[in-house]
Design a protein around this nucleic acid. Structure first.
Lengths: 211, 211
DNA sequence: ACCTGAACACCGTTCAAGT
DNA sequence: ACCTGAACACCGTTCAAGT
């Protein structure tokens, strides 16, 4: 066929399809050849739009971060800014965006934060914390530590690490894991509860440091 | 050559070499063929000792977790157990073990926690928290949320996401990132400070929930 | 039991050729 | 400009063959 009159591909279509493929079959399922097949073209065609496979992944990761709500960091029209409420709402939206695309989180969490949506997010958090009265150095740390907690919580399900078989946990080896097999069936609830407990502790603890 | 009189390989030697290769050149550099070459054998030889490449990675990840100090969770001979001090010391040792092998963290954080050292760790934390007076459900959550925070902090350096070039952050796009380029040069210090700030907040916040 | 080479079905990426 | 097939240098894994 060679060049069609209308381009078959666009960066957008490539990224959307890549993310859908990752969501459905995992990071490992994304190969350039497979992605190209999904798009109805041959493998090398992708290189007309992205320099490398990694650039495609970067773009997909950035669209995920782009879903995070940042409106809570907008300057309040009246009254002092409530940094605790803002941090709480942001962390929840941040986690929700990640857990909607769990398979891309390991890539997203590792890569450099140079992607535009990530920078926009860092900018909003930092700006709001400084506005609320935090010293700049502390505002930087808050952005970082919240990222640690949220990406960590979206990355590895804690409860998923336990199998449903009671036999798996020999009391001689793991004296306190007698009920651990019950965790497997309640994965989402437990991860969610742990996230909420940690988030509250984090914000309460930061409040103690805020003078 | 075929079978030698003394085995050329052992599970230990394979895992040690794999981890060294990952540490030096990253996760992507670990291929079965490359690893085999490093060990002086041909690729398929590895399959006499491990079923898959993933099993090798699992074993490597487990040796990393095996480095984490758990002695602070041993029952205190006298007096009530200090869960705050134990959590603090454990989190630091946990993070230190991960940051010594940063390239394997994305794999380690994603996989199931079925590996023996991970279970031993979960068991120790849970047991110590219950011993200290936490209800079982909360003890589970504490183990999970600490894991989120520590793996998240070891996984993606926050500061590494910023480049040293001041031009990279257009004030029109990122009004608060004027000093962001300075972060690049102080990576370790900033990540460490953010970790310590978050860890303190987390434990202080948990103390508020502990009645 | 533990190693080998050959083979299979894949990869990411480059490049000359087509329109 | 944007697609193609062919090609290169890789992958993980299986398997029959060797000792």
């Amino acid at each position: 066929m060679a060049r069609p009159r209308k381009p078959l591909l666009s960066r957008d279509r490539i990224v959307t399809t890549a993310l859908a493929l990752i969501d459905e079959e995992g990071l490992a399922a994304l190969s350039t050849r497979r992605l190209a097949a999904e798009l109805g073209v041959s493998g090398p065609s992708l290189y007309n739009h992205f320099a490398t496979k990694e650039a495609i992944l970067d773009a997909a990761a950035d669209t995920v971060i782009g879903q995070v709500d940042l409106s809570m960091f907008a300057p309040a029209p009246e009254g002092p800014p409530d940094w605790r409420a803002a941090l709480l709402a942001w962390a929840r939206s941040y986690r929700a965006a990640l857990t909607e695309h769990p398979h891309i989180v390991p890539f997203l969490a590792t890569g450099p934060g140079l992607r535009p949506a990530g920078l926009r997010m860092a900018d909003a958090v930092f700006g709001a914390m400084v506005e609320a009265g935090w010293p700049a150095a502390q505002a930087t740390r808050i952005g970082a530590l919240m990222r640690y907690f949220v990406t960590g919580s979206a990355l590895g399900s804690f409860a998923a690490g336990f199998v449903g078989d009671p036999q798996a946990y020999d009391p001689a080896d793991y004296p306190h894991l007698g009920q651990a097999h019950l965790l497997a069936g309640r994965r989402e609830r437990i991860d969610e509860a742990a996230f909420e407990t940690g988030l509250r502790a984090l914000i309460d603890g930061l409040a103690l440091q805020f003078r």
